[in-house]
């Protein structure tokens, strides 16, 4: 089985995004996520598939990681509005007032 080792900067990628990307690829690989002494993330992906390639697994993980990072950005910016919308939808009160 192949393995992929990556060091990811937590100033660029949120830990939540790294975990979600690893989860999303859970049918394909297992993941070990550890914080390094300098505050970065050491990630080991262990392929579950016979015939999977290092390059393919790494590329797909990084693509997924960017998607997850984008999602985290959206979630962070829209959390207050989401809560407001839910309150308005189920209370009948006007959020704009």
């Amino acid at each position: 089985m192949i393995e992929v080792m990556l060091t990811l900067s937590t100033t660029i990628y949120r830990l939540a995004a790294i975990k979600k990307a690893a989860y999303r690829l859970g049918n394909r690989c297992a993941a070990l996520i550890e914080l390094t002494t300098d505050g970065n993330v050491a990630l080991k992906l262990i392929s579950k598939r016979i015939g999977d390639s290092t390059q393919s697994l790494e590329a797909d993980f990084l693509t997924e990681l960017l998607d997850q990072e984008l999602r985290e950005t959206i979630a962070e910016e829209t959390a207050p509005i989401r809560n407001l919308l839910l309150a308005q939808a189920f209370s009948g009160l006007a959020a704009n007032e």
Binding site: A89, F90, A95, N96
Partner: peptide
């Protein structure tokens, strides 16, 4: 998205969500 010219958007969006549920 929402901008300064779309002040009805939030209310409308909440109604649409409520209708879906």
């Amino acid at each position: 998205v929402l901008d300064d010219d779309s002040d009805v958007a939030l209310g409308l969006l909440a109604i649409k969500y409520r209708t879906k549920q």
